[in-house]
């Protein structure tokens, strides 16, 4: 299946998801769904570096938080529409990802993981001491209740005349989106983009190159693979996607403080979800994020929000012991077993 076909299919699936959520017509569905989608993006982004090239990043929260804080900065400096902020957040985190790649390229295994963790601590300290974005007090973002789909900007973009607006007047209720639905839609689009990128990489020359880095860097170099450059590509893409996932977050949460943006939750989940789903394919992080993300949302409303990380921890331990290749590995083993 070509990447373009895959993109069309995932857009169709995303449209169905959105329509389905609209049918339920309950704000909570969008609220919880946003979190699950955000984890799909984070897990997919983590997997591009951690799963494909085998470099375990413990600093996902830092890239996520950078995206979020870029938004806080612009919100105060010069408010921009969220799609622009997503691009900016992606650029900031992508550049930091590139820098991290440069600084840590000689490190492998546990040393690389420790370096990424250190990066997260350094960045958090910087943000805590940066008063403009709220410092340790945090920052409030007041968001509107709803957003007109045909705002002045879109009118300009599509050259809609004012008298035409009057024409569609009776349908105007369909053209105004509650803000949480708007955020949900954005994150849905990001999930589609992230999954398409991940799948595209997997089937390309880049994917083969990443796999050789994971398997044996020395042999990869001897086969002509520019390992250094590919590692930088991976850290940049992975970082950028995490930043993009973080950019709408301040609008979603309304109040952003360093300890929540840099929270352990993000670092742990972005590792646990691909591990539980399976790291060798784009499907793994998707399955892991949907499963774990939904489970956490259910646990939050039925038991308590504190039980979240306990669930993740226990599942991670169970999977590492029982199914080190995740759910995908289990399924593959099962089908192979039946074929024999």
């Amino acid at each position: 299946m070509r990447t373009r076909v895959f993109l069309l299919i995932s857009i169709a699936v995303a449209a169905l998801v959105f329509l389905g959520a609209r049918m339920v017509n309950n704000d909570y569905v969008f609220f919880a769904g946003y979190t699950v989608l955000q984890f799909i993006v984070l897990a997919t982004a983590w997997n591009i570096l951690g799963g494909y090239t085998g470099y375990v990043n413990f600093g996902s929260a830092a890239f996520f938080a950078l995206g979020a804080y870029a938004t806080v900065f612009w919100h105060k400096f010069y408010p921009l529409p969220i799609p622009f902020l997503i691009v900016i957040g992606g650029a900031v985190s992508g550049i930091v990802g590139l820098g991290m790649g440069y600084l840590t390229l000689r490190l492998r295994g546990a040393f690389f993981a420790i370096a990424t963790l250190a990066l997260a601590v350094v960045l958090q300290t910087l943000v805590v001491n940066w008063d403009y974005v709220g410092g340790s007090r945090g920052a409030y973002i007041i968001r509107p209740n709803e957003i007109p789909l045909i705002g002045p900007y879109v009118q300009y973009l599509f050259l809609i005349q004012p008298n035409e607006i009057a024409l569609i007047g009776p349908y105007v209720q369909y053209l105004v989106l509650p803000y949480v639905q708007y955020l949900f839609l954005l994150m849905l689009a990001l999930a589609v983009i992230a999954l398409t990128i991940a799948r595209g990489i997997e089937r390309s020359q880049l994917g083969y190159g990443f796999a050789t880095i994971r398997d044996d860097e020395l042999a990869a170099e001897a086969s002509g693979v520019p390992t250094l450059r590919l590692k930088l590509v991976a850290t940049t893409i992975s970082g950028a996607l995490m930043g993009m996932a973080g950019a709408p977050f301040p609008y979603y949460i309304g109040y952003l403080q360093p300890s929540s943006a840099f929270g352990l939750e993000y670092a742990v989940n972005s590792i646990a979800m691909p591990m539980i789903g399976g790291t060798t394919s784009w499907v793994g992080p998707l399955i892991g994020a949907v499963l774990l993300g939904s489970l956490q949302q259910i646990a939050t409303v039925t038991i308590s929000s504190a039980v979240n990380l306990l669930i993740v921890g226990l599942l991670l331990v169970a999977f590492v012991i029982i199914a080190p290749n995740g759910i995908i590995g289990l399924v593959q083993g099962w089908t192979r077993g039946r074929a024999k």
């Binding site: 796999a211 050789t212 398997d215 044996d216």
Partner: peptide
């Protein structure tokens, strides 16, 4: 010592 790409 042979160093194949083990997952390919």
């Amino acid at each position: 010592l042979p160093r194949p790409f083990a997952t390919l």
